[in-house]
Amino acid sequence: FLEDVKGQAKAELQASESRVQAQRKVTQALQTELLQLYSRLDSPPGGASEPCGPHNTRPAG
C-alpha cells in the first residue's frame, strides 16, 4: 500500500517536472531568437543589403 502511495506521488511529480523541462526548452529557444534579433539590430540599417532581413524569406506554412 505504501508503495502504491509512493508510485502515485512519483507519477504526479514526474508530470509536474515535465512542465519545468518544457519551460527550460522554451527559455533556450527564446534566448537563441533574442540573440539573433539583437545581432540584426546592432548591424547598421544602411548596411549590407538585406533591408527586410531574413524573416520574410520564410513561407508561412
Partner: peptide, 21 residues
C-alpha cells in the same frame, strides 16, 4: 497516470505544458 485521483491533476499539467510551448 494509473491512479484515478491523480488523473485530473496530471491532465491539467499536460494541458499547461502544451499551452506554454
Amino acid at each position: 497516470p494509473p491512479h484515478s485521483e491523480s488523473q485530473a491533476l496530471v491532465a491539467g499539467y499536460r494541458r499547461e505544458q502544451y499551452t506554454d510551448v
